[in-house]
Design a binder for these strands. Sequence first.
DNA 1: AAAACGGGGAC
DNA 2: GTCCCAGTTTT
Length: 354
Amino acid sequence: MKESFTNALLEWNQNGNTRAMPWKGEKDPYRIWLSEIILQQTRVEQGWAYYEKFILNYPTVQSLAAAPEEAVFRLWQGLGYYARCKNMLAAARQIVTQYHGHFPNTYDTIQSLKGIGPYTAAAIASFAFNLPHAVLDGNVFRVLSRYFDIDTPIDSTAGKKQFAELAQELLPHGQSAAYNQSIMDFGAVICKPQQPSCTTCPLSSGCKALKLGLAGLLPVKTKKLVIKKRYFHYLVLRYKKLIYIRKRTENDIWQNLHEFILIETPEPVDTASLQASAGFREIFGDIRYNIDGTSADFKQQLTHQTIHSRFILMTAAQKPEIQGYMAIPEQDMDNYAFPKTITDFLKKGKLSLF
DNA sequence: AAAACGGGGAC
DNA sequence: GTCCCAGTTTT
């Protein structure tokens, strides 16, 4: 059964798999690594253009390692999970200084790099060096859970162990690169999360879930998601052609991205109440300002929180000092990375101030 | 073991 | 709204 699974999969890859992507078949470990970091928890279509941009701007690990952090973040802007960007740059510098620019070529040394876990290490080890390590990503969990009818929750420790062992057993000798690519393509193109193509699936004859009518119920996940609401009030303060921003450094969303002067409240409040609040007075003290307008509500849905943001446009008569914020020329905004909700405001605010 | 971490597309 | 995507790190 295991052998027929692998054989059928490789057969489909040879004769039925037409999926094309810029990094497919790539042998340069740097490019493979770059694609894998970009694609962590990210759909191929979403990451595609970012991969092209990074290859164009940073064609080698040396060029990436030498890049200023802010420039790399600016290129990553909009892709999400920004710790990946920070870790990617750290790993590039690690490769240059510690490995003299040669990408590590064993599973363990690859995984020791920042931002590389079991999945990414297996992907690089197999694609670049054809080492015998089976990848275990969302596609693999789904395909194996269905084909072998396994209902162990994939977000449990036991599930991860069970699927990892099975995946490794299925790996054909000497063909880890082709096999890993095949199973992920198969999961993305045929054995999809919703409406899998079971009627035309080349592996349908051996699929236990299909036989039992359970394909729609697998894989099993247990964790429940709690979404909390947050209300951000961004004070877009300007003095002449200067504008006040800071880098987010707290243990929170959007770490290392920039933002305007922020007051967060647990509930929505109007501008007048905000001005009267202790948080506002603490920031502004006796600074004299004018309020030029307030934006509409910008809503951003993240995985585990809903952010409501409003932008309050302000100008100061004298140059203010705002604790923790820096005044930068407006035209330098392009050099900094901002969260999506702020780039949306800058683009669609229709306030004609920028 | 559980929580945190973005943004987007499909339904 | 819900699910989930070529997952990893922190708590």
